[in-house]
Amino acid sequence: MTAVTDILHLLFTANLWQATLAAAVLLLLPALGGVISERSGVVNIAMEGMMLTGAFFGVVADLAWHNPLAATGVAMLAGALMATVHAVVSIQFRADQIVSGIAINIFAAGLTVFLVNRIYGLQDVGHVGQSELIPYINVPGLDQIPFLGKVLFQQNVIVYAALIILVLTHVVLFRTRLGLRIRAVGEHPQAADTAGINVFAIRYGAVITSGLLSGLSGAFLAIGISNTFVPNMTDGRGYIALAAMIFGKWTPGGAFIACLIFGLGQAIYDNNSIIHVSPYLLSMLPYLLTLIVLAGVVGRSTPPAADGLPYVPGSE
C-alpha cells in the first residue's frame, strides 16, 4: 500500500512532470521519425542506431568546434546519413526493411565504439565543457506559472523544439498536400505513382527525416543531458520509441501520449528511492503496458497498408 500512496504523492509534484516531459522528448523525436517513415511505407526499426550515431558525432563535433548548435547539426546529419543507408538498402535495393534496420543498429553500436578507440585512443572520450552544451532556458514570464511553468517552461531548448516539431509533424501529415502524398505513398504506392507522385522521392525524404529527428534526440542525450559519449548510451530508447509509435497508432499525437506514459514510468522509476518495489519489476512496466495495448485493450493499431513493402515501379 505504501507504494501506491508514494506514487500518488509523487504524481502531484511538478518536478515529476518536468522530468517526465524531458524523458518523453528523448523518445518523442525518434518516434516522430518513425511515424513519418512508416507513414510513407518504410518500416524503420533503426532509430536506435541513428540516435547513437547522432550522439557520437554530436560529441565529436562539439569537442572540435565548441559550438553546440553546429554540433547538433552534425548529430542530425549523422543520423540522416545512417537513415540514407537504410533508405538506399530498403528502397533502392528493396531489401527486407527489418533486416536493414537491425543491421543499422548493430552497425552503429560497433562503429561508434570502434571510432572512439580510433579517434581518441584507449583514453577517455573527453568531456564537452559546460558552456558548450545545448542550454536549458526558462521562458520569461511563463516559467512563473504555478506548476505548469516548471513543467513546460523550464526545459532544455530541445524540448521546446520537439514540441514544435510535434505540432509541425501533425500539421504536415494531415493538413498539407505533402502529408497527403506521404500517406498516399504509404497506403497505396501504385495509385500514388499513377497520380504522378514520385514514390521513391517521398520515401527517401521520409526516411531521411526520421534520421534527422533521431540524430537530434541523440544530440539531446549526449550534449544536452550528459556531456560526453558513453558506448551504447542510448540504451534501447530507439526500440521504446518504436513501441511508442505503434502504441500511438502511427499518429504524432498518439505517439506523444505514449512517450509521456513511458517518460512517466521512467520518472517514477528515477524516484525509486521512496518507492518500495523492486526497481526491476518497475522497469518491466512500460513493456508490459505496450503488450497490453497491442493486445487490443485500447483498440486495434493498424499500420499503413504498404508499410514494409518495397515499391517496384509498374508492378500490379
Binding site: F93, A95, S100, A103, I106, F107, G110, L111, F114
Partner: peptide, 21 residues
C-alpha cells in the same frame, strides 16, 4: 584492432545479404 570490428562486419554481412548488392 578493436573487437568491435566484428560487430561492424556482422552488420555489413546483413546489409549485403538483405540488399543482395
Amino acid at each position: 584492432i578493436s573487437g568491435n570490428l566484428v560487430f561492424i562486419l556482422q552488420a555489413l554481412i546483413l546489409f549485403s545479404i538483405a540488399a543482395n548488392f
